[in-house]
């Protein structure tokens, strides 16, 4: 009897486990399919639904929030899709949202994506109609792909021609076979590296100089940054301008003076050449010049004799004392 009870308990646990699993499974499915959620219906207009059927999922921001309730072909350009959205979407989806057809994954089931618009609008209400966006069909994609393939073909043909030309080019072959080229290239690269290093060092120096200038250090820094220096420089420039003005006036005066002197010289020259005065005679008349020379000779002789006389007078007892007095006075001064 005890064994029977144990068996019954085991059986009870076994059956209960199965039922619990079944209930849990149905609960998760119902949660997933929102089968107990209250829904409201809206409609979406499409020109082509590309295989959409009732029961397909409806997503908002990538989350399943409803199902396609019905797909109705109204005429050759209009398909009305009835969408059952979960009730909580009344607070999320807006009237100006659009409906776009999509696919779950690359080859999955068709679905409807409800896309929000940028502009503000009131919240959606039952019976509202959403505009459907044009679907990008596989045919469209293939057509674009075909065009892309053609372009790729053209590009690859061009590339092939270029490569053929490169392969046939003797200059390039020569260039590639030239062993010294790599050495030269290496040397050039080394030089370039060195030059780059130097340029970098120069730039660093330049940066330091610029930093000094910014800090107002050095002549250029002072020139650019020191306001007192600028004031002094300004004053100097002003003074230089004044000096320049004075020099200008001086030059004008000099010019006038030169003109006057020039006039005077010209007058003198004229008088010398053509004037009735003694100068003209002195310069032009050779006889007068000879007389003058003679007179000068006589004057020189006279002067020499006068010097002798004066020397004699110095030694004369009448005048000796006077001359000595004069010499003493001269020494005192």
């Amino acid at each position: 009897m005890a064994n029977r009870t144990t068996d019954n308990v085991k059986l009870g646990v076994f059956v209960l486990a199965g039922l619990v699993l079944l209930v849990l499974f149905f609960y998760m499915l119902s949660k997933n399919e929102s089968i107990f959620a209250s829904r409201f219906e809206i409609k979406a207009h499409f020109a082509n639904v590309s295989g959409l059927v009732s029961g397909n999922n409806v997503r908002v921001a990538g989350i399943v929030v409803g199902i396609v309730e019905d797909v109705e072909l109204v005429n050759d350009t209009l398909v009305i899709v009835t969408i059952a959205l979960n009730d909580d979407m009344r607070q999320i989806v807006r009237k100006n949202a659009t409906a776009a057809l999509g696919t779950d994954g690359l080859i999955g089931n068709r679905l409807v994506n409800i896309l929000p618009a940028a502009e503000p609008a009131p919240l959606i209400e039952p019976g509202d109609i959403l505009l459907g966006q044009k679907d990008i069909s596989t045919e469209d994609m293939l057509r674009t792909l075909d065009q892309t393939n053609r372009n790729v073909l053209i590009i690859s043909n061009g590339l092939r021609e270029t490569i053929d030309r490169i392969n046939k080019s003797t200059q390039l072959t020569t260039l590639l076979d030239d062993e010294s080229l790599s050495l030269n290239l290496k040397a050039a690269l080394l030089n370039l590296r060195s030059a780059t290093g130097q340029a970098s060092a120069t730039m660093q120096d330049l940066n330091a100089v610029v930093a000094d200038v910014r800090n107002g250090e050095g002549s250029v820094g002072a020139l650019l940054r020191d306001t007192s220096f600028a004031w002094e420089l300004n004053q100097t420039v002003r003074k230089l301008q004044a000096v320049e003005n004075q020099a200008d006036r001086l030059a004008q005066n000099m010019d006038a003076l030169v003109k006057e002197v020039d006039g005077a010289v010209k007058g003198l020259q004229n008088d010398l050449n053509y004037g009735p005065g003694a100068a003209n005679l002195l310069m032009k008349d050779s006889l007068t010049a000879a007389r003058l020379q003679n007179a000068l000779g006589n004057l020189e002789q006279g002067t020499a004799r006068f010097s002798e006389n004066m020397e004699a007078m110095k030694h004369n007892f009448l005048f000796r004392r006077y001359f000595r007095k004069m010499e003493k006075k001269k020494e005192k001064d």
Partner: peptide
């Protein structure tokens, strides 16, 4: 029936 359920069900688990 209960006994058979135990034998058929539980013992096959």
């Amino acid at each position: 029936l209960i006994r058979q359920c135990f034998i058929i069900g539980y013992k096959s688990l």
